[in-house]
């Protein structure tokens, strides 16, 4: 999923971790938010948004990332700007 790849590359830059680790973190957050059985290409814009605002935020807090609030806001902005990737990369 290119939207996950894109958000993860931004997250990796922001908290200084590797891109594969950031992708893994986002995928874990998606599992927390909508369960483990939904294929990633069926995750909607609203579900991505709630994932970032809820479960990813919690995971950032658990990792003691002080700027978690700003990171969440930034990722939601990125998601909104690049939302078409969900469709154009998902069909």
């Amino acid at each position: 999923m290119d939207i996950i790849k894109h958000l993860a590359s931004r997250l990796a830059e922001l908290i200084n971790i590797s891109a594969p680790a950031a992708r893994g973190l986002i995928k874990l957050a998606i599992k927390d938010e909508i369960g483990p059985f939904r294929p990633l290409n069926q995750v909607s814009f609203n579900e991505f948004k709630s994932t970032i605002e809820n479960s990813l935020k919690k995971r950032l807090i658990n990792l003691e990332i002080a700027t978690h609030e700003l990171i969440v806001q930034y990722l939601v902005r990125e998601l909104t700007e690049y939302q078409s990737l969900i469709t154009l990369g998902g069909v």
Partner: peptide, 13 residues
Amino acid sequence: ELLELIKKELSQK
């Protein structure tokens, strides 16, 4: 395994 990797990367940083 993933969380340990992230914590390790963060502590290195």
